[in-house]
Design a protein around this nucleic acid. Sequence first.
RNA 1: GCCCGAGUAGCUCAGUCGGCAGAGCGACGCACUCGUAAUGCGUAGGUCACGAGUUCGAUUCUCGUCUCGGGCUCCA
Length: 660
Amino acid sequence: MRLPDGALKHLPTGSTGADLAAALGPGLAQEAVAVVVDGQVQDLGAPLPTGASASVVTAGTPEGRAILRHSTAHVMAQAVTRLWPGAKYAIGPAIEDGFYYDFELPGGDHFNEADLARIEAKMREIIAEDQPFVREEHGAHEGLALFADQPYKREIIEGVDASEGAGGGVVSVYRNGDSFVDLCRGPHVPSTGRLGHFRLTKLAAAYWRGDERRPQLQRVYGTAWESEAALRSYLARLAEAERRDHRRLGLELDLFHFPPEIGSGLPVFHPKGGMVRKLMEDYSRREHERAGYQFVFTPHLTKSTLLETSGHLEWYAENMYPPMEMEGATYYPKPMNCPMHILIYKSRQRSYRELPMRLFELGTVYRFERSGVLNGLLRVRGLTQDDSHIFCARDQLDDELASLLQFVLRVLRRFGLDELEAELSTRPDKFIGSVEEWDRATESLRAALAASGIGYTVAEGEGAFYAPKIDVHVRDAIGRRWQVSTIQVDFQEPQRFGMEYVGPDNARHQPYMVHRALFGSVERFFAILLEHYAGALPTWLAPLQVRVLPVRDDHVAYARSVAGRFEAAGFRAEAGAADEPLGARVRRAKLEKIPYVLVVGDDDVAAGTVGANLRGQERPERGARVEEVLARLAAEVAEPGGRGPGGPGGAGPGGAEGAP
RNA sequence: GCCCGAGUAGCUCAGUCGGCAGAGCGACGCACUCGUAAUGCGUAGGUCACGAGUUCGAUUCUCGUCUCGGGCUCCA
């Protein structure tokens, strides 16, 4: 056998992957779950062909975990069939961090939460029995006979799905114990005794083959790991995500809520959340102004005729709020801003000298999202997009896309999101426009990505039917990936609206149109920031930056004068009262995640200093000079790269100066 | 929209095998005047999500509705 490091290992003919692992070391033998032979992953128990190159897959690797999880899913299906004789099982793959299996219980029965514990207990019995996983291969006919009472398995065999173990006329199955057999490509761990560090996590419904019209199955989710420690650390990660949940933080920090009186998916922002949002929006406006965007404002309602022209009524109607009749016309709440921006473009004849024209609006739109998809601020029914539409000539497209992407990335980084990745979605099977147009626009996007220096993947055929696009994803502090910005070229709307401009040749041309949302939706971006920072927003975004706490009542006047100095310098500061023990007031300020907690007592009144207890700092300092703390705060909120303070509003230079 | 689960004070949650509803935190008041993550005492606060049914009696049991959570589907 040839090993990954190039070394050769001699084994007797007929040796298996398990023998190979054992020959390489007892530790490896214990960790091994499968073996890769000439690029094909297979069971440890299968004989190795002479002269092949082989490497051992261990439990703690992504590939090894997938095998553990998949095997655990089999055990779960076995447990369910023991507990519910006659249960039908559909598919049970490994997924990120775990696995699931879909079932249909006899008599239309459903699982409930308490069943998870029963299933788990039964699984532990099966694991204790240490049943070997035995691979068998059959012809398609035999396979169908084997699964005579398993319609979903039969459908997979009939559909010849190689990823599920039914391809090339051969059906592979795995048997463990005397009664349970499952259609499966494999590989599996040698026996159920290798499993055990798992937990069943949740129940859900799932449509067979993901199709709403097909039967609805019961899905059981679980997680499985190579060790108890790894399982525990995963569960701790879940707890951490829970701690960062923006819905919880929104309540605790008094930022926003969803009044049932208003309706599902329709948030209200409280003063503190409103301040954060205002800071985000102010920053966005300032940067857009610097980057040559023009601000526009459009209404929330429109006659149906506009949406007919744009095609929204044809393509997007099911995501729209229902119409209202008024004075003989039909009005809709707008689901998108683009048609209105196009009308602004079309309000008069345009010259090539006006291009590129970049229109920007924080535009509030309404979308009828199905009730089950609503999710805090991440998915709402009324949202504000930081939306822009760029109209340009064909020869401007490359430069425009490149600078646009740079702009997007710079703004995202300013919010502390610096792990950025992109996805380029290319032409789908159904598309409008010409292949030549598509290729050209896709190449422009690709060039913009290459110039930006961020990593990207290509999603072949995933573009919208009207255009290719770039989606920008960020990774947050605990490694979760969120889609934020999107940049889409649009071949359809300019045509539908008959947009044109007069070129240098005195002829009429159709402009290119680029849609772009940077935050995506302000609400969603707000939620992502909250989760990323676990509520401790960067100082320039903190609703309150400074609280000055007097030690005793007789320090209140001094505390107010200190807070006043910060306010005069353009910071958000307030003085507290001396109504509780200092420790309690400090604690309260910390829980509110105020970045600068200043304490003033006798010494400070005498010396004109403060005690500084700053967020993220180990221990409080005593006797700091006020100017010095002010300077530190100013430096902290200043934008890297010397673009001036992003934080202070009143005294800050705002943003009129400086071209992009 | 579908499946599973939840809804009790502002928040987090107990509780009632069907018989006048509880804690902690928070709010408010009083006292304390304090040097860096919880001072003490007191007061107020509830249509037990909403509607119907069963019952002498329903917060508790049943049905329906609404809202929320986890998934599925969807995501121009």
